[in-house]
């Protein structure tokens, strides 16, 4: 059984949209900007809400203005991969942008004259209310955490879409029930529970879940690939992204 074609562990062919944002072709550039907005708008919104204590309306306007300005100025094109990670650069740009916006408050009604991108701020606001207040007040950590959360959410959505596209909805449903459900022990379903519920053997639960997880892994890595400016940054972000997995154990062969 050849799984490798289906899910390359380390996608290397998908170009970084950050590189594409510098393309001389305006169509490619526009697409890259749209992809960047899709990857970063929610972390930006959440960051402005949490770090700058902006009201939901202000955060919405600031997010729209920031991305509209980023395309016009052009902020994304000025990013230099040699000087650090793209998300750190972006976070610094946001801080500068919001600080200037505060200084210029009253200059004009915020959001005026800006071409708005359709973004689901209502859902983003609802999510902020659902999640506990972040423990870290460090701007870099705060933005990183929100970016990571959004990347994982995007990868989950990619997995859902892919599974729906080739009639693997049961696979995704298992992934959703088992891996995305709240982690508290009392409400967690076992493989046996899921097998009984779906009327399939436990081995099939294992196989279905393995496929969904494989797709999720590939989707996540592709999202990171897309959101980083270079191979080195991709590797650094993957290392950072998975830093907490399994922790650093003291015993056992290394």
């Amino acid at each position: 059984m050849d799984h490798s074609r289906e899910s390359p562990a380390f996608p290397s062919t998908r170009l970084s949209v950050i590189s594409l944002a510098r393309s001389p072709d305006p169509v490619i550039r526009r697409r890259a900007h749209t992809a960047l907005v899709s990857t970063y708008w929610k972390p930006v919104y959440r960051y402005i809400r949490l770090r700058w204590n902006a009201t939901p309306d202000d955060a919405e306007d600031l997010t729209q203005e920031f991305f509209a300005g980023a395309i016009e100025l052009p902020t994304f094109e000025r990013y230099d991969a040699a000087r650090g990670r793209f998300r750190t650069y972006l976070r610094t740009c946001i801080d500068g942008f919001v600080a200037n916006a505060h200084k210029a408050a009253g200059r004009q009604k915020r959001g005026g004259g800006v071409e708005h991108v359709p973004l689901d701020f209502t859902t983003a606001e609802g999510e902020i209310r659902e999640l506990p207040i972040p423990s870290s007040q460090d701007p870099e950590t705060l933005f990183r955490d929100e970016w990571v959360r959004h990347l994982f959410e995007l990868a989950v959505e990619d997995t859902r879409t892919q599974c729906a596209g080739d009639d693997k909805t049961v696979h995704f449903s298992l992934f959703e029930r088992y891996d995305l459900a709240p982690r508290d022990e009392t409400s967690r379903l076992s493989y046996d529970d899921l097998a009984r519920e779906l009327g399939i053997p436990v081995t099939q639960v294992t196989n279905y879940l393995a496929l969904a997880r494989r797709r999720f892994r590939a989707a996540l890595l592709e999202r990171v690939r897309e959101a980083t400016g270079s191979d080195d940054e991709f590797r650094a972000e993957v290392r950072d992204l998975l830093g907490g997995a399994f922790g650093e154990r003291e015993n056992g062969p290394r």
Binding site: E153, E157, G244
Partner: peptide, 24 residues
């Protein structure tokens, strides 16, 4: 979709690292 909690994120990180031993 509900937002991913920190606990779920931690679990998903582990899933990404878990080896896919299908076929072995």
């Amino acid at each position: 979709m509900k937002p991913l909690s920190d606990d779920t994120l931690r679990h998903l990180r582990e899933i990404v690292e878990l080896p896919d031993t299908a076929g072995t």
